[in-house]
Design a protein around this nucleic acid. Structure first.
Lengths: 187, 187
DNA sequence: GCCCAAAAGCTAACTTCATTAGCCTACGAC
DNA sequence: GTCGTAGGCTAATGAAGTTAGCTTTTGGGC
């Protein structure tokens, strides 16, 4: 008969990510991915272990994509400039792909598949903060504070959680300034 | 035959919340709630319109419960003391019911059922900030910044997103201090 | 060019859920 | 006591994940 679909795990994840971007995480179903890739549902099991596995791979992809994007943003910058750019780029990424953000893992370090990507992301933040000369646990705390702010804002914004979109740029700018003031203050 | 189960919408939501606390939001299924309340699955439709409706009601309940708890915490306090107490009580609530927090709505204002509770929560925060004398949009921004911090931290902590639990109390204390410093700085 | 093992699909079947339809009866108001 | 309704039930449908087992494409070695 005809030719095979020629799927690979990567192509399945591609299709899943498109689906998530278009219809949200709840719409990520093996049946929908199968339809989109032109294959019967059970065939997907040749490329993916389960729906849970697929979710994990989509999350991994999002995290890698974000890390790549943020890395580009940060290279060549340092100090407040770098931190500000990182935070704004994080928000911009989530604004461009709002549905997708809900698929990103919140605990990548506890997942075998995602751990490496999670560490990479963490190291990017640590590197961005390098010029502040934070030592040991101070660096960890500073990284966590940054994460709390960017994730907190992005998760609320991407799920439409702010009553009105009005003035959100200002709110975010204030958060960035607050973080930077704090960083300076305790350095 | 025997006596009726005597269910009410409230009892169904009670059971659903127990289920969520024990096994997480993903485990919230009509079949499980029916089993727990000793009734056949379709009988639940006499008290709840759908699974989505039940989810909404559980979310509402969580939000009301949190608001009640935080209100108790904040009365009789003002200024930094009130803000700090509010933020710590928010975290404490989520620590006590980690699974539950994932069921809380992120956009209560956009849901007919939850809107009133969402406004009540917002007003609690605004009231807590009252003594800082913020006017108009400044008050809105300050409320948002607080929400970003408490939600950001709570959502990450409750889903086990911090690599190690070590030092989390310190991280949170720093966030609270950062927020307060910022509030004072711009007042 | 041919052969074959493995990879990639497929269909059939099962399970768990949500949801709807339609029936039956406990029970409170009168 | 009776009667309407609310609260429960069973049966049935449809979507989705998953497993088993069959078929066939396909690419590598001869």
């Amino acid at each position: 008969m005809a030719v095979r679909a020629g799927l690979t795990t990567a192509k399945v994840v591609d299709a899943a990510l498109e689906l998530v971007d278009e219809q949200g995480v709840e719409a990520l179903t093996l049946a929908a991915v199968a339809a989109r890739t032109g294959v019967a549902t059970p065939s997907l099991y040749k490329h993916v272990a389960s729906l849970g596995d697929l979710r994990g791979q989509v999350g991994l992809r999002v995290m890698q994509d974000m890390t790549a994007r943020l890395t580009e943003t940060v290279v060549g910058r340092s100090g407040d400039d770098a931190v500000s750019a990182l935070m704004h780029a994080y928000r911009a990424y989530v604004q461009e792909h709002p549905k997708r953000y809900a698929a990103a893992p919140m605990d990548p370090l506890h997942d075998e598949l995602q751990r490496a990507a999670g560490l990479k992301f963490m190291e990017l933040v640590l590197a961005t903060l390098r010029s502040y000369g934070l030592e040991g646990s101070d660096a960890i705390h500073a990284t966590r504070r940054l994460r709390v702010i960017v994730h907190g804002f992005a998760s609320i914004e991407s799920s439409g959680g702010f009553g009105l979109p009005e003035g959100l740029d200002d709110t975010y700018a204030q958060l960035v300034r607050m973080y930077l003031d704090d960083l300076r203050g305790q350095s």
